[in-house]
Simulated assay, not measured.
Amino acid sequence: MANNRVTEPDFGLGDIPASPPVHYAEQALLGALLLDPYGIKNLGTLDAGHFANVRHRALFAAMAALTPPTPSLHAKEPVWINAVHAHALPHARGLAQSYLHTLAAACPEPAHAPAYARMVRADHARRTVRTHADLLVQAATDTARPDPVAVALAQADALTSALDHLATAFPSHPGSLPRTTPPPPPARDSGPDAVSEEQLLVSTAVAYPAELGSMRWLRPEDFAVPLHGALYRCLSSLTARGDPVDGVTVLWEAQQHGLITPAFTAQDALDLLSAGAGVPEHWGEKILRRSLLHHAHAAGMHTQTLTQDRANSVHQLVTGSRRALADLTAVRARWQHATGQTATERPRPRPTPASRAGPPNTRSPRTPAVSTRSSR
């Protein structure tokens, strides 16, 4: 019997993805520090975690931990490059000493090390926001958790705190709005449970129209099925005008809104409006819960798209991500009103402590400076 197995093409060098610009910025920075070890004092706040490459993290951690040799010794002997390699090797197996020479050759100008460090910090900021966005999407779509809303809101708070910190760490500039095209919104959860809950809310609200006055936290756009949201708008309009509410009056209002069609007849509307059970608030909270998770999912996806566009600066990324979270914040406020929760104030970001890459601040901000003048 002939062997008809399809052979896969071999993986060639052309299949290796191109390195991003930050890879060369990391190489240039490490090369500058190999050529001028004392330049690490001029980099500002930078630590090994800012590097994307594992080998680069180990090398920078070694440079930050070791004491550089004297300039005269560094000029004559390769003690610095040998010490950095020996210190980093246990944390980056397979790190060849020749790679450190490659890094030194990859640095165009050692004096530009602070600029390279800013590039490394900026790309780390982008990756940080992407990680928070991924966690937000995961929390919003994993409805098997005991309390997915609490988890999603906690992830949204973590993303917001990260954005607040980046806003203080990176300066603003003109043209702060990103030009990245936002992704299409994710599909609404229109499964059997969602459809049943929305139908029960509309029909129960017909039986208890007085309850709609205390349900201003629910809006037609919260419904997964547009028809159900439109029927809820009809009910809200009747109660706002003080008109009688029953199946026939809602049917007439639905006709005025163009909802009665061959696909949704008057009899279909009457059947839907007469199958109430429970109380409107119960079903309304379930609908608003699904809407909140949908907006959390959309905000996470929008932020993911912004982080994928490397043309966005950190300030543009922060501005665009905050706008992506705005709709979720509005739905969250209505959720807190519906469930009787109190909005908690998020802690303000604290300044990042200085690392060995920068001079430490030895004076407490609350401790007044001691005067050198003697008291009379």
Rank of each mutant, 00 (worst) to 15 (best):
E77R: 14
H165W: 09
T181S: 12
P178Y: 09
T367G: 11
T362F: 12
T303S: 08
C234Y: 01
N82Y: 03
P182K: 12
D15K: 05
T249V: 05
A18Q: 13
I260N: 02
P280R: 05
V250P: 10
L270P: 03
G31N: 05
H124L: 00
D222C: 06
V206H: 00
Q255L: 04
A104D: 02
V331H: 07
L292A: 11
L317A: 03
R310T: 15
H124P: 02
T303P: 03
P280F: 10
G278W: 03
S364V: 04
W80A: 11
L235W: 04
K76S: 14
T329G: 15
P108W: 02
S313E: 01
P178C: 02
V6C: 09
L238F: 04
V279M: 10
P360R: 11
L328Q: 02
L259T: 07
G300Q: 04
A83P: 05
R310V: 13
G242Q: 04
A65W: 00
D142Y: 09
L292P: 02
V151I: 10
R290E: 05
G320P: 01
I81Q: 00
Y116L: 05
A104N: 02
E211K: 10
A65L: 06
N3P: 03
T204Y: 02
T45Y: 11
N312A: 06
R216L: 09
D142T: 10
D222N: 13
T141P: 03
A122R: 01
A224M: 07
P110D: 05
T265D: 03
G14C: 05
L95S: 00
L35N: 06
Q255S: 08
Q316W: 06
V54M: 10
A32L: 05
P347M: 07
F51K: 09
P186N: 02
S196W: 10
F170E: 09
A106F: 04
A92Q: 04
R348H: 14
S291I: 02
G284A: 00
R127L: 12
A224Q: 12
L89E: 15
R373N: 13
G247P: 07
G247A: 13
D271H: 01
S313Q: 04
V22S: 14
T342F: 03
R219I: 02
D47T: 14
P220L: 00
A48S: 13
L35K: 11
R348F: 15
V370M: 10
H91Q: 14
G340P: 12
L103V: 00
P353H: 04
S374M: 08
A162F: 07
R55E: 15
A207R: 06
S196P: 03
G12Y: 03
A75D: 13
P184S: 09
T362K: 06
P184T: 09
N3F: 10
T168F: 08
P110I: 08
A88V: 04
G12A: 10
A139E: 02
A296W: 00
A333P: 00
L33N: 01
P368E: 05
G242A: 07
V202Y: 01
P192H: 05
H337C: 11
A311L: 13
L238N: 01
A357I: 01
E8Y: 11
G284L: 00
L227W: 03
A277L: 06
P220D: 01
T180C: 01
L328C: 08
E221V: 07
L95N: 05
H337M: 13
A275M: 05
A167N: 13
N53D: 15
S313A: 06
